[in-house]
Design a binder for these strands. Sequence first.
DNA 1: AAATGCAACAACCGCACTCGA
DNA 2: TTCGAGTGCGGTTGTTGCATT
Length: 265
Amino acid sequence: MGRSPCCEKAHTNKGAWTKEEDDRLIAYIRAHGEGCWRSLPKAAGLLRCGKSCRLRWINYLRPDLKRGNFTEEEDELIIKLHSLLGNKWSLIAGRLPGRTDNEIKNYWNTHIRRKLLSRGIDPATHRPLNEASQDVTTISFSGAKEEKEKINTNSNNNPIGFITKDEKKIPVQERCPDLNLDLRISPPYYQQTQPESFKTGGRTLCFICSLGVKNSKDCTCSTITTAAGSSSSSSSSHSNSNNSSGYDFLGLKSGILEYRSLEMK
DNA sequence: AAATGCAACAACCGCACTCGA
DNA sequence: TTCGAGTGCGGTTGTTGCATT
């Protein structure tokens, strides 16, 4: 039993949008608001798939979009965020008002990658190119489960986590080359050493929450607060993450951009 | 002027996640 | 608890326009 198609492909237009289609979509969303993308095309009189309408609106027609070239500040911010978040374009876009994930992704692939390469930096690892092949232990958040399964699968044949390639055994170390946080695994020390700005109202935020991600399955606030002797829940940490004493991620509150949550558009 | 190569970006596709019945 | 619809995300492809030969 396969997945049902998102739309009836036989009667939908594809390719570039016409001015008339754009106008219809804008008019419909102005009148009825966003949402119900599947039923929108029919209601708006468009021969388009709902996903296509959503994409067109989000990436091109939304009134709050900032068109035009990226500034040098935006460039640097994207690089910093990419070094922290990897290819999480929607999260990166959440930090750049008026920019979309698609736009940033395209810009990264066409401009920034080359810019970093010309600086001698590997765009995937944000390390000097000549260091790229060195042993690096990285931590992945999103793919941790899958990677664990892969490793378990591999371990059926080689329990120490080696993969075989062209008769060579290569240690599996760089599991997420695009998210190199240059972190080291060590006993927790945040209780003593974390700067005050990393805490909210006396509570400590996990890394995920410090990024502004809400209700993430990767959130470890409860673990941390327990460890810190607090009885507060992770949600209370979340609710405090935007207050005046919240973590100033990348100095955004006081720096280039105003702090805003990473809630999706 | 025509052919070709390349960069930029809009759009598509498939998978994963969330949520309600 | 399960399942399906709806939606979001990231990777990839297709199209267009400009530069070069």
